[in-house]
Design a protein around this nucleic acid. Sequence first.
DNA 1: CGGATTTGACCCGCGC
DNA 2: GCGCGGGTCAAATCCG
Length: 398
Amino acid sequence: MESEVAFQKLLQAQNKAYVNKTDALNWPQESTVKNALGCSLLSLNLNNLELSQNQEQQSLNQLGLLQIELEELKKENQNLRSMLNDITEHYAALQNQLLLVIQHKKLSSSPPNSEDMQANDMDKAVLPSWQNTGEFNNQIASQVAKFSEDRAFCKKARVSVRARSESSMMGDGCQWRKYGQKISKGNHCPRAYYRCNMGTACPVRKQVQRCAEDEGVVVTTYEGNHNHPLPPAARSMACTTSAALSMFLSGSTTTLHATNYPISDLFSPLSTSTYHPSASSCPVITLDLTQPSRNYHKFPTPASSNPSPLLLPLYPQQSQGLPSEKNLALVDAVSAVITKDPSLKAALEAAVCSIIGDSRYVISRLAVERQNINSNCEMIFLLVLNTGLKHKSSTHKQ
DNA sequence: CGGATTTGACCCGCGC
DNA sequence: GCGCGGGTCAAATCCG
């Protein structure tokens, strides 16, 4: 919990810096100078006839100075943009880390029946009783250690993506360098080994192999975390796989089996989570994008809720991400279902509250993000909905 | 000519 | 210890 709080503070600090930098970028320095330049030129034209040669020379000098100033401000704006990009990258990285901490907290804390807590109890649960005791530092240390373990586990874990493709390489936005190829046992198609070529000594590797049963299907397995900023297209895939991995990690523990809506239900049959039999117990989650008829995943809905099933488009085959209109439609569909079902809404809020600590903050953040939603939104909603559905199913059972 | 790819050799973990 | 198989290395080769 403490590491989570620390990460939230970090995120807030990053947010503040982000806003400051954004404001800085929005300052109309360049346009002001351009306007001033225009005014100077106009003034120069009007008075030109009356000006003496010296005055004209002075105006030209002024014009030159303004042009120099404009160039300097352009450079400054460029630097600010670069800083903004850096901050955005760090912000995204911290968000991913926070997600991991939250997931780890969910699976490492609380007794087995904690999911059965009522929403009111959850408000109490988010305020740790040991916060003012001598255990405080120990808890921080243990959380940091657990977080490190979690990161180490995530480094070992792999995410496999099955996709139907003519080309042997799936376009994921990263630059890869091939370093090996093998014919593996049980598959006559060669397996190619790639290393991320975007950063210096980036540990991320991927394996690409055509499916033995269906050679039209390419199986791409990612391993490791990037140690460098990613371009938007690559970030989309990286966030999707890391979110899937986080969900898998949370679902692979007791929560997976203790609920009517396990994580595997969210991914399966669209995707399945399995353990790789021969990779020294490294967990592998598989995202299966090969079934066009399953692009819409039917969420299980309890009998008392809205009878019409909620259909969420997942990973359309031919696009790197959903168009924003579809994303907004998705958000609207999710919002409508949540709004129609008060019990689901309450469960969702309680669940979010339990993992974040302040549901109002999250809801407002979701509202803000709705305006600037990207292709990862479905993963966020899957995470939130999965948590909400789990809680709802457990409260329905009572 | 430099970077990317190919490919055989090598390393290492695992099971017997 | 030995064989097997997956993964990696690095020299050779290719290609723009």
